[in-house]
Design a binder for these strands. Sequence first.
RNA 1: CGGGAUGUAGCGCAGUUUGGUAGCGCACCACACUGGGGGUGUGGUGGUCGCAGGUUCAAAUCCUGUCUUCCCGACCA
Length: 572
Amino acid sequence: MKTSNLLLSTTRETPADAVVISHQLMLRAGLVRPLAGGLYNWLPLGLRVLRKVEGIVRDEMERAMSQEILMPVVQPMELWEESGRANDYGPELLRIKDRHGREFALGPTHEEIITDLVRKEIRSYKQLPINFFQIQTKFRDEIRPRFGVMRSREFIMKDAYSFHMDTDCLEKTYQTMFEAYNRIFTRLGLDFRPVQADTGSIGGEASHEFHVLADSGEDDIAFSTQSDFAANVELAEAIAPRSARAEATAIVEKVATPNAHSIAEVQSCLRVKTKKILKTLLVQGATEETPVVALVVRGDHTLNEIKAEKLDLVAEPFTLATDEQIFASAGCKAGSIGPVGLSIPVIVDRTAFNSSDFICGANEDDFHLTGVNWDRDAKATLVADIRNVVKGDPSPCGQGKIEIKRGIEVGHIFQLGNKYSTALNATVLNENSRAQVLEMGCYGIGITRIVAAVIEQNNDEKGIIWPESIAPFQVCIVPMQMHKSPRTEEAVMAMYKTLTEMGVEVLLDDRKERPGVMFNDMELIGIPHRIVIGERGLDKGQIEYKHRRDEKAQDIPEDEFMNFLKEKLNLA
RNA sequence: CGGGAUGUAGCGCAGUUUGGUAGCGCACCACACUGGGGGUGUGGUGGUCGCAGGUUCAAAUCCUGUCUUCCCGACCA
């Protein structure tokens, strides 16, 4: 490819509304252009990278015995009603009607479609296990698209779905996918970690997310400082304190805390540490007998809604109590609630239950209680893990302490079980000629997001630094004064022809630009290998080479150059 | 959905306070010089000032509404 035939839309200035580095560089390098909120055009250079990512994913999926198919973006609503997700999925599901008034949705994921396909096509246990994947556009009407293609509304995803007669078989495929994912992200040159994850709205049992470590990530990942343990903070267990609770030494006293409603306000009002204060939150209960439930965590901790939601007493989805309910249950406004004397169920976090002589709301506006103790002054209906882990907590694996880093979720694998196969009645005949519901796994990779994630981890002040595996071109040739020097032109064209015939993806910058412009553009778009050819070198019988990551260029004798380059390209 | 910003040429911005001929840099086009790190000069192209309505002799500027984009929040006891 020659730059004269390529839309090379680089810009010197960074568009003002791009915040993260990958978004800035994708715009500056001319990979993508915004169309509307969360919608992007992919320009030729960006698409070349996207296709490379797809290629690696496809290659490894096929190696892992998954078969490629393609399912429609537009999906009939009936299937969503059949699975029950028409109600559950909410406003992220973009619904549309055709000319006949029939309802459809733009697919945010394809569990319903694949399950429908499989129930129609697969008849016998002899055909199982089977694993299908597709690389397809998804649409999710995100609350807040941001960071360019990192969180866009339309995006490309690889999604795979496996079907099994039993959970043992599912677990084997899950493990195969786990290994395939590790190979994929390794080939993509990413610094990543598999982490234990919550299954979220998609449902199911076991689940791992694959996260690219980057400060711009939107997820918090909890790591152990001493083991391989890694889990999304949504899931990471906050283990019970090992030490016994200290003896009660104080008596309960009611103190005025005018206008102090938040933990921070109470803290500054009473001049105590936040960990001495317990906060009590009222939420919707699961049953009519317990319409409101109290949740208690320590002032320096935050409630984990996902953990809370899983408790039998707590309504799903997690919903805070209304002001009316709070007044009816506690006799005060939010901000002055405490566990003492409440007649509703009180669920206490394990760590909060280890506090003694603590401070909490007095269930009377603008008053708090000090010197409160569990059992003596307040009863816990249930003690459970309902908070987020924080840095320094003991790791649930038993080794080391928790450390928290930001991650970009680029892959997610689930053991779904039979949620969808049951809902859609996807069965096959087993050895006994009996219909049996299928076990199901699903495995996603965010293709477009990966492009951004790679850039987040591979850039410098000059621009993008592509890993070899997904660079839009492996090599660029930058000629010096080619329009004035027939000798240079001859050498450049010969090099271009040789490399092209070798099957190397080479970009020849044949624009009549100044050297500085060409150097800067090639560095901005991140081509790994650079060859400079000019009279200066030719006079000495030399050709210049520089890797994008090299500090300095080196001059190589002409007759050794091809062997030198082959070694650099791993073609030797 | 709540809060805060923002919108003027492809990009980055000034002009709005105090109403009076729409500007600058980059990019783009032409020519000349230059030629190993975004060079210089001369001359150009390009804008319904987000949109709609209002006030006024006169609106980018004041008023009302509306939309876009971006940021923060959606944990608050």
